[in-house]
């Protein structure tokens, strides 16, 4: 019976659900993502603009808000480049060479993802805090790390540690090292090979890794909250400032400042989508039917 049936144009009806089931599943998926993702995102902007654009922009005309934005930019400007250098070095070592303990190293690099942000903050308090290992030494020399900017930078580095390495390693592994070997055999130096051959090949993944690392660095809350001490105008990052405003029932200002981070998240997703298109266009050009 099945064999004699004429095939419908698409030829896949045997492996398709009935139309009613399909529509139901699509509705469930859209409903789930709508309720849990879209509505919270829209709510940020609606609450921020509740009292009009004037009030919205007035929220940024505040010394504490400006200080928070400046501190967040400073922290990201230190943490992201450091993790970028680390990510490139780790990806190069892991993807281009084989050595004992490699899979352990890969697991260890992932560790910060597994650790709760609060614990990430705590471990630095236990080392640099007044009660910590180095506490007495630091006090003697009048160096402040916890409840100061260096602690915030450290906690942010920890939390965003794996992003670049994680994006780059599988990409570099997939590229292999033949092109680099060719470059070297043609007389290029190591640096030239890296800059002219490796880097262009992985640039999209690198961009995405950096953008994601940056978004997390600017938005980190739990770890920074533990080490910052919440000193207004001095050790408050944007997320911490949002918390303070919200707890003071200053909802419009809280959501206005939060909307900055929401826009950052949207830009991150946009770049991710662009990078994915670029990557799929590239892999389609190189060899059809490859898996990302």
């Amino acid at each position: 019976m099945i064999a004699e049936r004429p095939r419908p144009p698409k030829g896949r009806s045997a492996v398709r659900e009935p139309i009613a089931v399909r529509i139901a599943l699509i509705t469930v998926a859209i409903g789930f993502l709508g309720i849990f993702v879209l509505v919270p995102l829209l709510a940020v902007f609606c609450e921020a603009l509740k009292k009009g654009l004037g009030v919205y922009f007035a929220s940024f005309n505040d010394l504490a808000a400006i200080a928070a934005i400046e501190l967040t930019l400073l922290v990201a400007a230190i943490a992201v480049p450091l993790n970028l250098v680390f990510g490139v070095a780790a990806a190069w070592a892991i993807a281009k060479f084989d050595f004992p303990g490699k899979s352990l190293l890969v697991t260890l690099i992932d560790l910060p993802f597994a650790v709760s942000p609060v614990v990430a903050g705590l471990i630095y308090v236990l080392i640099f805090g007044a009660q910590g290992w180095l506490g007495p030494f630091l006090q003697e020399h009048d160096i402040k790390i916890i409840f100061a900017v260096p602690g915030i930078v450290l906690a942010t580095i920890f939390v965003t540690f794996p992003f670049v390495a994680r994006e780059l390693t599988p990409l570099m592994q997939a590229q292999g090292s033949e092109e680099e070997q060719v470059a070297l055999s043609l007389g290029a130096s190591g640096w030239q090979t890296f800059l002219r051959v490796t880097l262009p090949n992985v640039r999209w993944g690198l961009i995405y890794g950096v953008i994601l690392c940056n978004a997390r660095a600017m938005g980190e809350f739990g770890a920074v909250s533990v080490v910052s001490g919440h000193i207004r105008g001095l050790t408050n990052t944007i997320p911490l400032h949002v918390e303070i405003l919200y707890n003071e029932y200053n909802f419009v200002a809280a959501f206005a400042v939060a909307s900055l981070l929401a826009v950052l998240a949207l830009i991150t997703l946009l770049i991710k989508t662009l990078v994915e298109w670029q990557a799929s266009a590239q892999s389609a050009f190189r060899e059809p039917q490859t898996n990302p």
Partner: peptide
């Protein structure tokens, strides 16, 4: 693209939004 939003949206922002 929406699936990735919880990765990208800072947790404090999601927190105050959900609470509201």
């Amino acid at each position: 693209a929406m699936v990735d939003l919880p990765f990208a949206l800072p947790t404090a922002v999601a927190g105050i939004s959900l609470a509201t």
